[in-house]
């Protein structure tokens, strides 16, 4: 029935939520189990640390993307922002203290997000078109800033991306914190509820006296901030910032949201489930790498797996 088709995974009647969550957790565990049994390298500390580091970029982008998708929009510009923020931070290191340079890189992401948001919210332009235009503009700006990769000499530049807190990379903890705080933001603050409601029915929200443009702008700004942070962390992890990095990153971010059950029409999706989507994607990538599958075949398989996961989810939802 319609009620079940429209339900949001985060807020449904308790019993059903558990089944879907359980199925999801089972899928992730199954992936881990398959990986552990079929590959000698999967459970090695080196690979696990790698896995934790690899999920940072996709994770940060996916959360930002989720916030925008909840409003019924899309942010295609995140991959370009990753490149710009990274190369800006790396370039500024020459003249500024490292933390300040990195902060400026992040703020560039915030600014790009805010511009996207204002164009969508105040000028009423289609999110797809606006962020497609900023995808190419920001990519261009990254190359304008530096055509060649920038590799700062100061080893302190690598700290953010490679420092470990015990067995866990600091960057991974930052990403987890974004999901934790972000999840609370979406479910337990007035702004978070308003953002979710806008994706469901913007007119109802407007007539409830809530500013739709302000919340839309906020959503795109959050996405920009996440992308900026991801860009800085990525540059720091790799040790070199490239203007060409991040092409098609937005697709993995969108895929993670969708695997996590978010609706591209808006109004439905949760931080927790999106994080699950990130895990699924990263595990698949890692597995295919370990098997030495050719990268073209990796793309094909990833696409098929995404479709399979979504089909399973849909049957789940219809059956309730």
């Amino acid at each position: 029935m319609t009620g079940q088709l429209l339900r949001k995974p985060a807020l449904v009647v308790r019993g059903r939520d558990v089944t879907v969550t359980a199925a999801f957790v089972a899928l992730i565990l199954a992936l881990v189990a398959v990986a552990a049994f079929t590959s000698d390298t999967f459970l090695t500390p080196v690979n696990l640390t790698n896995l934790l580091k690899q999920m940072v970029t996709t994770g940060l982008l996916a959360f930002g993307m989720l916030v925008v998708i909840l409003t019924g929009g899309i942010d295609l510009s995140v991959g370009s922002v990753v490149a710009f923020s990274g190369i800006l931070a790396a370039g500024l290191v020459a003249g500024l203290p490292i933390p300040v340079a990195m902060l400026v890189g992040l703020l560039a992401g915030v600014a790009f997000g805010a511009v996207n948001g204002v164009l969508v919210a105040r000028f009423g332009l289609a999110p797809f078109v606006v962020t497609l235009a900023s995808l190419t503009t920001i990519r261009g700006l990254a190359f304008v800033y530096s055509e060649v990769p920038i590799a700062p000499d100061d080893p302190a530049f690598f700290t953010l991306g490679s420092a470990m807190a015990g067995p866990v990379p600091v960057a991974t903890l930052i990403m987890l914190a974004v999901f934790a705080v972000g999840g609370v933001f979406l479910t337990r603050t007035p702004a978070g509820r308003a953002i979710t409601a806008i994706g469901g029915n913007a007119e109802t929200v407007r007539l409830a006296g809530i500013s739709v443009p302000r919340h839309l702008t906020l959503a795109y700004t959050i996405s920009g901030a996440c992308a900026g942070l991801a860009g800085v962390i990525l540059a720091s992890r790799v040790g070199i910032a490239q203007p060409s990095v991040g092409v098609a990153f937005e697709l993995d971010a969108i895929a993670a949201c969708v695997i996590g059950g978010a609706s591209l029409a808006g109004g439905r999706g949760s931080a927790r489930a999106t994080f699950g989507g990130v895990l699924v994607l990263v595990l698949i990538n890692n597995l295919l790498n370990l098997y030495g599958v050719q990268s073209f075949w990796q793309q094909v398989l990833k696409g098929l797996i995404i479709i399979a996961v979504i089909l399973v989810q849909r049957t789940n939802r219809v059956r309730g």
Partner: peptide
């Protein structure tokens, strides 16, 4: 223009 159909009764009434 009265409801957000995908959201819960709670979310709607509190909007």
């Amino acid at each position: 223009s009265g409801l957000v159909l995908g959201m819960t009764v709670l979310d709607n009434i509190a909007l």
